[in-house]
């Protein structure tokens, strides 16, 4: 298998194929994501409604998928904290009986695979997708899963990656694979 492109996002920096493409002085993920969105010139208003995990996954995917045709590109993502960042926020909205305000707009992000859906929508990718939760980043596992998708002929490329976020701790390492 060939790794065509890679993107790493951590510590308020975005690195694509080994080159630093964006760096921010902001201390929060929220600020960083907003600045990165501007810097990458994305003009996709839905971005602002996404939860943090989806923003992280989305930004990393944008740097790799660009405007090319991805109608045969599968997505295989994994992380450690599932959607716990948003789960925690949602739980706070229902903890108290006197202050019980569950929001559907927050609840929908309490699943880790929503970020895969967001990327699929942006790039019109009606393709194979899977989301795994693992104790630690396991590139071998992701590559094995991607490889069997490619060998079965169900896709020509696989956008693979680790998209981990809980509060201010985050890391995305996303890459594109072909046979």
């Amino acid at each position: 298998m060939k790794k065509i492109n890679t993107c790493t996002i951590e510590y308020s920096k975005i690195t694509v194929d080994g080159n630093l493409v964006f760096e921010s002085q902001s201390e929060t993920f929220q600020e960083f994501a907003k600045e990165a969105y501007k810097s990458l010139d994305l003009s996709y208003p839905k971005f602002h409604k996404m939860d943090h995990l989806s923003k992280l996954a989305f930004l990393s995917a944008e740097t790799i998928l660009k405007d090319e045709d991805h109608s045969r590109t599968a997505i295989v993502f994994a992380n450690r904290s599932s959607s716990l960042d948003t789960d925690f926020k949602y739980q706070e909205s229902i903890n108290s009986q006197d202050n019980f305000y569950p929001s559907p707009a927050v609840f929908v992000y309490t699943l880790p695979n929503i970020c895969v859906g967001e990327i699929s929508i942006k790039h019109k990718m009606q393709t194979e997708n899977a989301f795994f939760v693992l104790d630690e980043f396991d590139e071998n596992f992701l590559n094995n899963y991607a490889e069997q998708i490619l060998q079965s002929g169900k896709a020509d490329k696989v956008l693979c990656g680790w998209v981990e976020l809980y509060q201010e701790n985050y890391k995305a390492f996303v890459y594109l694979l072909t046979l």
Partner: peptide, 28 residues
Amino acid sequence: TKPIVVSNACVSGVMAIAVAKNMIQAGK
């Protein structure tokens, strides 16, 4: 072996069968 968690909303249970099939077929 290291546990694998499949978490794809309401399709997870069907997908878990597929994951087992595919990983065994791949010889892992």
